[in-house]
Design a protein around this nucleic acid. Structure first.
Length: 137
DNA sequence: GCCAACGTTGGC
DNA sequence: GCCAACGTTGGC
């Protein structure tokens, strides 16, 4: 299974990049959308994801890697929803804003924009590399 | 099984 | 603060 690429949203008020770095490893729980949950179920250990700050910032701030897959959401009393654990890899040299992503023809059709309410989205490899290039120059 | 009402998310 | 998109709920 080749590596896949994801984008995971969090409101920094609730859980920010700095919170994850402080923890070292974080459980990505509280997802209550089937499409987002299915994306988490499809994740493999070692897949990489962008950490995106929604609402405040509206920008991709860092790269994380999936460290544990296939766990049930500890915040779900019924134990039906999926969760994963993630670790920070590196902060981006420069955050990439939603406005930049929307304005870039190379990122037309990206799930982040097309399905704006999806909290766990998949990126194609070209989309992933393009966003990295926007940050790193 | 349809659809209106309502709640939530997230951008503006 | 508003609104669009989308999911869920409940009446019929």
């Amino acid at each position: 299974m080749p590596k896949r690429y994801w984008l995971m949203k969090s409101e920094p008020d609730a859980y920010s990049w700095d919170d994850l770095v402080a923890e070292g490893e974080g459980t990505w729980d509280g997802v209550r959308n089937h499409r987002a949950a299915n994306n988490m179920r499809a994740m493999q250990v070692g897949d990489e994801a962008f950490f995106y700050h929604s609402n405040i910032g509206k920008e991709v701030v860092g790269v994380i890697s999936i460290s544990v897959t296939g766990i049930t959401d500890p915040s779900d009393p019924d134990g039906k929803w999926a969760a994963v654990k993630v670790r920070p890899v590196r902060k981006l040299a420069r955050p990439v804003t939603l406005a930049e992503i929307k304005a870039d023809p190379a990122l037309e059709g990206i799930e982040l924009v097309r399905l704006s309410r999806l909290s766990v989205a998949e990126l194609t490899e070209p989309e992933w590399k393009h966003i990295l290039s926007l940050s790193d120059g």
